[in-house]
């Protein structure tokens, strides 16, 4: 009997101390972690939109298919002209969901794509983020050779309103010459990561399933819309305002 009490007590005390320790660390790091996540989101937004646009975070209060949170970019030069939208989309990959952010222009063309979260096989599906650097190990100096993440790059300029075709006859995009790459673009087609067809399909399927519906509901892709029109059209509420480089004061307008 006394034995049981001693065993229980020992485990209870150790668990309590462990819980307390994790609680303290969590308390100390949670602001920092939130800031890092915010930073990651900002960086993602910067990759999916072209340079020089003003990005505004929007909350969807209507029922529809549009996700609760999405982003709108305004062309900086005109300020009222819509440059595009960004959405967070999930596709079913080889190992769980692949979460990515995709920026689309008002014409439905993809402006940029970036992966937020995935659990794909290291060395295969995880190559969605690969930067195919042509640098060799014995030239350590020289820095950036301008290589971009080719898998995401190949989506830029494709239409999200038409199905994106997967071309299985060609090798990976970054190994092709410019003419073949242009041909792929004309056909609205991408190449696969060798050995990771399911990973590639996760992107094309998710884009095909969701983006056209979102754009239709937001009504933006038929004609360039002004900010006023969007606000009139949708019950939207802007929660945060991100100014890229010009600190203009009409941001308050969106917070009304």
């Amino acid at each position: 009997m006394g034995d049981i009490i001693k065993l229980t007590l020992t485990l209870t005390i150790i668990s309590a101390i462990a819980g307390l320790a994790i609680g303290v660390v969590n308390d100390k790091t949670k602001d920092k972690i939130a800031a890092q996540q915010e930073q990651a989101r900002l960086e993602a937004l910067e990759t999916v939109f072209p340079e020089g646009v003003r990005i505004v975070e929007m909350k969807n209060l209507g029922a529809g298919v549009v996700p609760d949170l999405y982003w709108i970019a305004f062309d900086d030069s005109a300020d009222t002209v819509l440059a595009g939208y960004a959405f967070e989309v999930s596709g079913i990959g080889y190992a769980g969901d692949i979460k990515f952010m995709v920026g689309v222009g008002i014409d439905g063309n993809i402006l940029g794509l970036t992966v937020l979260d995935h659990n794909e096989t290291p060395g295969l599906g995880s190559r969605v983020n690969e930067i195919a650097s042509a640098k060799y190990i014995w030239y350590p100096v020289g820095g950036d050779d301008g290589a971009k993440p080719w898998f995401k790059e190949q989506f830029v300029g494709l239409s999200s309103l038409k199905p994106i075709i997967i071309d299985r006859n060609l090798a990976e995009w970054h190994k092709l010459d410019e003419r073949t790459q242009a041909n792929l673009r004309n056909n609205n087609a991408v190449t696969i990561i060798t050995g990771s067809t399911i990973t590639t399909e996760a992107f094309t399927r998710a884009i095909g399933q969701h983006i056209a519906g979102y754009l239709e509901e937001l009504g933006g892709y038929c004609c360039p819309a002004t900010r006023k029109e969007i606000e009139a059209k949708k019950a939207v509420e802007a929660v945060a305002v991100e100014t890229n480089d010009n600190e203009d004061n009409d941001t308050a307008l969106l917070l009304d």
Binding site: V25, N26, T29, K32, I33, Q36
Partner: peptide, 10 residues
């Protein structure tokens, strides 16, 4: 768990 929080934060 502590290590994971630290890695996430820093």
């Amino acid at each position: 768990s502590i290590l994971q929080l630290l890695i996430k934060a820093y």
